[in-house]
Design a protein around this nucleic acid. Structure first.
Length: 583
RNA sequence: UGGGGCGUCGCCAAAUGGUAAGGCCGUGGACUCUGGAUCCACCAUCUGGGGGUUCGAAUCCCUCCGCCCCAGCCA
């Protein structure tokens, strides 16, 4: 009952199962997602959100949303709202359990005095540089601060005066008195409070001293009754400190910290610093640029919350650093969208075709299902056909290679939902030799039927009637970087050097079937043989839709074509992830 | 370098001493008016290397190798 089916197990579930079996925390599970409101959430955060809220859901516990807002100089309310919106959009709900570390400042302060009184903390006059220099190195122990021996009375007095604003920023800190010789540098008298005469987005000017992460986090967990405090691997070294504070305070509730590996994805960057740089330097159009793996970017691109959740489930949770293939995300997106999205025809790069045996005035309409695999489910639309149509330029080849079964001189293809068409002529530009038009004839017997003589038609292509087509803007998005690990260049090359110049290709000449006149912002479609698309909620205007490609369809022809072009030269061909490249 | 972690298929990831799940990718085939979807089959004699314990080891022990994190008054 606690373990849902289909959800892969992981070490945390194993631990929780054991805790429940042992009656720990009275069998309760309380987790939390503790973002610092200093930036936008990205897919890495989504992993943590799915984990924490997912555990709470599956074990019938609860998950708190707690803003870890202990550093006023980096944080801002603007982020609070975006973070809440993103979590809700992802499909999770913290109910009434919304908290701020800032709301614990009073309690934290009292506890700090308690530690001082117990001789476990002291006010230190060393500045940041001096603290660094006396901390020692990995191989040498640190030296005690000259202020380490201050009396309890003195410390209390000084600490109260710190709080009262008597000292300048950086002039003094409160430090935990632990062990300057500890092999774990985090235990070498870590700072608990620093002076920051900055107003806080939540506590205003009530405080001029602010607790550090290490001092605030575990105690916040304890206050809220968190049972399993889940964070990423880099905090592992902080666990002894987390436990030390809890032990000194001897609080009735004792949370435990567990660490898991953060999500890494290839062909992108995830660090806040790099994301900011991309936005600030204009390499993308903002935090919600569809190429960004921010939650806002994914949403704008058209990726659904279900797909992100499915991805997080599939990726799993473990303690080994890993980099997940972008193809995995793409696969999840296709999986989720495929059964629920209408199919429609859009020609991305139109090539004009004049059909010689159709009268100029003739217009034929065909009712075509929006979802051919289950026609009743999504209804149908009219697809008009006339003597001039456009087909995809790449669906015609003058000299087709072996397995190309689309259009070529003298060859036939099926026009989807319409006739079998034969190419009878190629019109070229006299100067450039470029193909400007095709001449064709249709087999009038083949509308909605196979050729009577039993001849097999190899391919079916999408098309659009010239007289009825609606011009649409199509934005083809591709991975933002050209290399798997842009941030990890051995020679120190800046990650921006690997930006993919084709990460956004805007098609202005694309032509959609007439039903697309009715496209509404926020809708998703499959453009047959192309991919899944989303009507951009911001740039689309009524009657002038803008489509973001969410993800391309799997394309085994593109793969075959590429393999044919670059044959395996002496083995060792690079394995390709799924291709999302513009074609 | 001191400390803390981690190494299971190209990429994720289960298996907790009983004889290597699953997903992504890939390959072959069936089907197909989307080269999509779907279906079927194949895809680690082996768990970083080497020793050892055991009837039996990815799991325990020893040893070596590789990778990641830590010296913010960031989180």
């Amino acid at each position: 009952m606690t373990e849902p089916e289909n959800r892969p197990t992981n070490f945390l579930r194993t631990i929780i199962d054991a805790d429940i079996a042992a009656g720990k925390h009275g069998g309760k599970v309380v987790t939390r997602f503790p973002p610092e409101p200093n930036g936008y959430l990205h897919i890495g955060h989504a992993k943590s959100i799915c984990l924490n809220f997912g555990l709470a859901r599956d074990y019938r516990g609860r998950c708190h949303l707690r803003f870890d807002d202990t550093n006023p100089v980096k944080e801002d309310v603007e982020y609070i709202d975006s973070i809440k919106e993103d979590i809700r959009w992802l499909g999770f709900n913290w109910g009434e359990h919304l908290y701020h570390a800032a709301d614990y400042f009073g309690q934290l302060y009292d506890w700090a005095e308690k530690l001082i009184a117990a001789g476990k903390a002291y006010v230190c006059d060393l500045n940041a540089d001096e603290i660094r220099h006396t901390r020692g190195t990995f191989t040498e122990p640190g030296r005690d601060s000259p202020f380490r021996g201050r009396s309890v009375e003195q410390n209390l007095d000084l600490f109260r005066r710190m709080r009262a604003g008597e000292f300048d920023d950086g002039a003094k800190t409160l430090r935990a008195k632990i062990d300057m010789a500890s092999p774990n540098v985090n235990m070498r008298d870590p700072v608990m409070y620093r002076i920051r005469k900055t107003s806080h987005h939540r506590s205003g000017d009530a405080w001029c001293i602010y607790p550090s992460y290490d001092w605030a986090h575990g105690q916040s967990d304890a206050i809220e009754g968190i049972t399993h405090s889940i964070c990423t691997l880099e905090f592992e070294d902080h666990r002894p400190l987390y436990e030390w504070f809890l032990e000194q305070l001897a609080l009735p509730h004792r949370p435990t910290q567990y660490e898991f590996a953060r999500l890494g994805l290839n062909y992108t960057v995830m660090s806040k610093r790099m994301l900011i740089e991309l936005v600030k330097d204009g390499h993308v159009r903002g935090w919600d640029d569809p190429r960004m793996l921010t939650i806002a970017g994914l949403r704008r691109r058209g990726v659904t919350p279900e797909a992100i959740r499915a991805f997080c489930d599939k990726v799993g949770v473990a303690r080994a650093n890993s980099t997940v293939d972008m193809g995995m995300l793409e696969a999840c997106v296709r999986d989720v969208l495929d059964p629920k999205v209408r199919r429609v025809m859009v020609v991305h790069d139109p090539l004009r075709v004049v059909i010689e045996n159709v009268a100029e005035s003739a217009v034929e309409e065909t009712l075509a299902p929006f979802f051919p695999d289950d026609p009743p489910r999504m209804g149908a639309r009219n697809v008009p056909f006339s003597c001039i149509i456009y087909i995809e330029r790449e669906d015609f080849m003058e000299e087709p290679p072996k397995k190309f079964f689309r259009l070529a001189p003298g060859r036939e293809v099926r026009l989807r939902w319409s006739y079998v068409m034969k190419c009878v002529g190629v019109v070229k530009d006299e100067k450039t030799g470029a193909i400007v038009e095709l001449r064709a004839t249709i087999d009038p017997e083949t509308r909605g039927a196979n050729p009577k003589d039993g001849r097999k038609i190899g391919g079916a292509i999408h098309w659009v009637s010239a007289a009825h087509a609606v011009p649409v803007e199509v934005r083809l998005y591709d991975r933002l970087f050209t290399v798997p690990n842009p941030a990890g260049a051995k020679d120190g090359t800046d990650f921006k050097a690997y930006l993919n110049p084709a990460s956004l290709v805007t098609l202005s000449g694309a032509l959609g079937e007439s039903s697309l006149k009715a496209a509404v912002a926020g809708e998703r479609y499959q453009f047959e043989r192309k991919g899944f698309y989303f009507v951009d909620p911001i740039d689309a205007k009524p009657g002038a839709p803008v489509f973001n490609r969410i993800v391309s369809l799997r394309d085994s022809w593109a793969k075959a074509a590429q393999d044919a072009q670059q044959p395996t030269s002496g083995g060792r061909r690079e394995r390709r992830g799924s291709s999302n490249a513009p074609r």
